[in-house]
Amino acid sequence: MTITEHEEIARATFRMVLKGQIATEVREPGQFVHIQVSEKFYLRRPVSIAEVKEDTVTLLYKVMGDGTEALTKKHVGDQVDVLGPAGNGFPLDVREGAHALLVGGGIGVPPLYQLAKQLRRQGVRVTAVLGFQSGAEAFFTKEFTELGDVRVATNDGTLGHQGLVTDVLDGEFDTYFACGPTGMLRAVSEKMEGVPGYLSMEERMGCGIGACLACVVPSNDEKGYRRICCDGPVFNAKEVVLS
């Protein structure tokens, strides 16, 4: 795919727009693409899709190490080797007029943006709870405000509530969707027990197509596991066991 936009939108957080055929094959919010940064980096990097337009996908990624650091050096016009769209996203069978809670932690926020847009289009009321380490790392708070109620929590209190996303989940919701670190997903699913919910998980991946079994999560059935890259990354909260 070809890079058409690339900018830093918050501390160590970059927005990259890629143009190409793959964008037309995205089925649902919550899917991801698997990017080869360069020949130097042996493993691809999975990045969730934040927004889809005709033939572009918008990705947000955070610099976590050498690979994502190298990705920041790419320029508009550069070609990127991308596999995808991969995985299964959020189910969209939410009835009109229902109230959906979206909970995102850090770089788990991006896939919820496309989800919020589609839910709104279906007449679903959206409340978004967004958690960041600090105000400097926050992004998309304004974009979500255009789609529904927004509550922000930061670890250091530099923006919104000081504390965790789970401090500000009060309310009546028909369903919830969460994406973020596993600890946050577990806390959210415990707090929202009884409400149907879906969790999008992240893990270091090998192949990204389900063959290598690097990114597994224990499941509540005889099979015993799910592959995050291809059975997920979105799971029914009752399907998986979060450690």
Partner: peptide, 10 residues
């Protein structure tokens, strides 16, 4: 089931 995650590193 295999080992716990993380299971791969570059």
């Amino acid at each position: 089931y295999g080992n716990g995650t993380t299971r791969v590193a570059e």
